[in-house]
Amino acid sequence: MIWIAPNCRYWDIAGIDGLQVAKQLFGAKIDRIAPFQSLETQLDGADCSVLRLCEANFRIGWTGEPAVFLAIMQPLLSHKIWLKQFNWLAVLRLRETDGWHDFDWGSIAVAKPPHRLSGLADHCAAPARLNGKALLIWRHSVLGEPAVEFQMATCDQAAIKIQLESALPLKI
């Protein structure tokens, strides 16, 4: 199993004006994706992944300098939103080119209905449970490289990593 380190920091925005702020950041295309879908884009020349979590909540994976992102966001904070980084959110990531592209994630974890893990498409995510522990499974590309990402509580990261490693077939 080859885990790769996330090459970004995650920032969350949410609030009544969350969609409008996201539109200002990423353009109208951000309202073309539904909750638990994502897109890859660039912001101020840096790659970023944007995952929509509900109508007005977005998680932004930013590969640039934090200070630059904060500077971009500063004029937008007058809208009815908050901007946060969660120190309790951890991330594990696998390269899909390592053999995980066609893997049926529904075979090891249980999605929260009506989400589906079997056939989970690229740029889609689903809340799920692995042996009772919550994780968000997200297929998307980072810097053009397809990956599957697992987001979880920091306190569960070690246990989930072990569970994933024991549940997943040894492909590599």
Binding site: D31, R32, I33, A34, P35, F36, Q37, P114, H115, R116, G119, L120, A121, C124
Partner: peptide
């Protein structure tokens, strides 16, 4: 169906 997997409301709407 309320919505479709891997597409979602926004994509269906557009």
């Amino acid at each position: 169906p309320n919505s479709f997997a891997n597409h979602g409301v926004q994509a269906e709407y557009w």
